[in-house]
Structure formats: structure tokens, C-alpha cells
Write a protein that binds this DNA or RNA. Structure first.
Lengths: 182, 182
DNA sequence: GTATGCCTTCGAGCGCGCTCGAACGCAAAA
DNA sequence: TTTTGCGTTCGAGCGCGCTCGAAGGCATAC
């Protein structure tokens, strides 16, 4: 996905780690510049996705976009804001169909606010779960890196921290059969 | 993916959070029971994936599996161990083609150990990056849940911790225009 | 004997999220 | 006037990771 770059920029802008201050979240959440209207190229540039993808999102019913005299798309501030939101959700792993559902709710009016919040809360839980999964996987990979050779060599000393286990202390793989990939 | 269940079980077995002790990682990393040989159904059961998927992995060149007199697959301990590893890597997001590369290296002999470690280290970094991305997304979603209605309402008080912002204190959405999905 | 159940191979199909190409329109620049 | 550059619509294609169905083999259960 081309939009990975968006996330890269966000991460760099926030300084890669640190305790995620409120201001950082503001910087992350607030849309920097919202001109009155934008062309498809400008929006594509802003969100680091292709015009093709923007048209695809429109076809999928995620945004409505007006046309000018030449039939060219004119993105107003609301459309851009919605696309920013949608892009963020896509980057965090929300499926197209869920976004379609959410957008349908949003377009249905204020009375769907509780249901929309349910969707967001559920997605929040999905993200949390995925982070836990990845943390587990990370530990496993680090363990494998540290003890490379398989379950035989218990060189666990490098596992003090979750971020330990660098390319240093690497025991040679004990020569067993060739098959088990690692 | 059916194998999500594997991860679910791993998470439950480890107790969902806590500081990821060395024993926990052992429990995560060690294969519980490795019988001499297993049938495709048994392996599928063990790894929570379908026989179809196991055959697909074999077709993809990720494992070699012997046959018995009836032409049925016989998974030996090495094959099972490799599949456990492969499944873990898949769950952590490694692409099939990368696994194919890794496996080719493993089959090429001991001299590829450094290159294999490079692959693992790179994948470790990918996982770390993805965790950071998701953490950022999580913060954004939590922020949106807490301040539902958009950037207007700065109800940031619920954002003290990254895991704060529960379904409680939810300000009503300020009535602006309908479009910006949220 | 036949029915069941699990296995085999092979190739096709699917759902997702884009991604692209063809054929065309309009407008400002050379 | 022609070229360039950016836009349009429509529908097809792609890469990924499975997932499935058809047609058949073998063995145990009834």
C-alpha cells in the first residue's frame, strides 16, 4: 500500500517512540491544512495514495465528491476530512466493508452516533488485540534470533528485555538434520 | 485466517498481558508434543489450519512431506517443527515469498545461517515497526472515541494513559455538518 | 457388498484492496 | 495548430493467501 508512507511520516514526525503525549496525538489527529477545495492530485498527495485509489473509494461509496464544469472532481474540506479519517482507519487495519458500514451510519444522521461509537470501540479492541499478538510474535522471533539453532540451545541470557537480543551473541546452529527451517 | 485461533490460544495460555517472562516465551516457543509421525488431519488440528492449507504450503515448497503405502502424507517431527515455525511467522505477518526464501536458505545448508539471521532480524524490525504504527493508530482511535465529534471538542482529560478512554465519559457530538464521517 | 470416511491430485475460484489500460475531454503552452 | 498534461469513465487484471470441488483410491464398519 502506498499509504504506508503516511504512517512513516507520522512516526517520524512524532519521533518514533516516547510516551505519546497529548500534543503528539493532536499533531497526529489534526489535519494540517484544509484548503477550501482540492483537486484529486492534491488529495492524493496529501494522503499518499493514488488518484486511482481515491476514485476507487468514491466508487465504493465512502465519499461523495462534486464535479466542476469540466467534470473534474472537487474535494471540499468535509470530503478531505472524511478521507483523512478513512485513510487512518485503513492504515490501522479496518476493512473496507467496515468503513462502508461506518460511513453509512454517519450519513444516516445523528441518531447513529452510539452505533458508530460501538464500531470504533470494537475496532479499538481489534487494534489492541493485534498489538498483543505482534508483541508475542516479536518475543518469539527475538527468542529465535538469540538462540538460533532451535529449541535445543537454551541461550536465554540475551532475553532480559523485550528489545534485547541483537545481532551479537549468536551461537552456531547445532548440526541436526537439515529440515526444520531454523 | 483460521490460524487466528492459534494466536488466541497462545494469548490465553499466557494470560493476555504481563511482562512476558522467559518461561512464557518457552511455553510459546516450545512445541508441546511432537509424536514420531502425524497425519495431515493431526497437523492441521495442531496448527489450527486446514489440510487444504497444509497441502498448499507443501505445493509452495515450504515443506517436504513423505507418503505412506497408500500415498497419504506422513509428517515427521522435523516437518511438524518446521510447520510450527512457518505458522508462527505467517501469524506475525511474514509473507509467503519471504518464507519461501528463508526455507530455501535453510535447505541450502549451514553456510546460510548468517543470511537467515538477517531475514529474521529484518522481520523483527518489521514487527516492531508495525507495533509502533498500531500503537499510534490506537491512540488516534482512542482520541476519537473520547472526543467524538471531531477536532472541535478538546476533551482530552480521558487520555492520561494509552489504554484509557473507555466507553464512559463520552461527550455528545457537537452538531456540525453531516459529511465528515465522525 | 457397499457405505463411510479420510485421504489423494489437479486446477479453478474467491475475497480483498487496489491498480491499470483504453479511449476520450478540455485547456493552457509551444 | 498541435502537443502536453491532467482529468474523466468503464471494466478488466493482479497479487496474495488461501479455499474449494471434482474425481478417484483405500480401508474399516455394517
Amino acid at each position: 500500500m502506498a499509504t504506508d508512507d503516511l504512517m512513516t511520516r507520522a512516526l517520524e514526525a512524532l519521533g518514533d517512540d516516547g510516551p505519546l503525549s497529548v500534543e503528539a496525538i493532536h499533531r497526529l489527529t489534526d489535519v494540517p491544512d484544509v484548503p477550501e477545495t482540492m483537486t484529486i492530485a492534491e488529495v492524493a498527495d496529501l494522503l499518499d495514495l493514488s488518484p486511482h485509489t481515491l476514485r476507487y473509494y468514491e466508487r465504493a461509496g465512502l465519499v461523495e465528491v462534486a464535479r466542476d464544469g469540466n467534470g473534474h472532481r472537487v474535494y471540499d474540506a468535509d470530503a478531505v476530512r472524511r478521507l483523512v479519517f478513512l485513510t487512518r482507519m485503513r492504515l490501522s487495519g479496518m476493512a473496507m466493508r467496515d468503513l462502508q458500514h461506518y460511513v453509512a451510519l454517519a450519513d444516516a444522521g445523528e441518531h447513529t452516533v452510539p452505533e458508530r461509537l460501538d464500531v470504533l470501540v470494537e475496532h479499538r479492541d481489534t487494534i489492541r488485540r493485534r498489538i498483543r499478538e505482534l508483541t508475542l510474535s516479536l518475543a518469539a522471533v527475538e527468542y529465535k534470533i538469540a538462540t538460533y539453532g532451535g529449541a535445543t540451545g537454551p541461550d536465554v541470557h540475551a532475553l532480559g528485555t523485550t528489545t534485547g537480543a541483537e545481532r551479537t551473541a549468536l551461537p552456531d546452529e547445532p548440526p541436526r538434520r537439515a529440515l526444520p527451517a531454523g
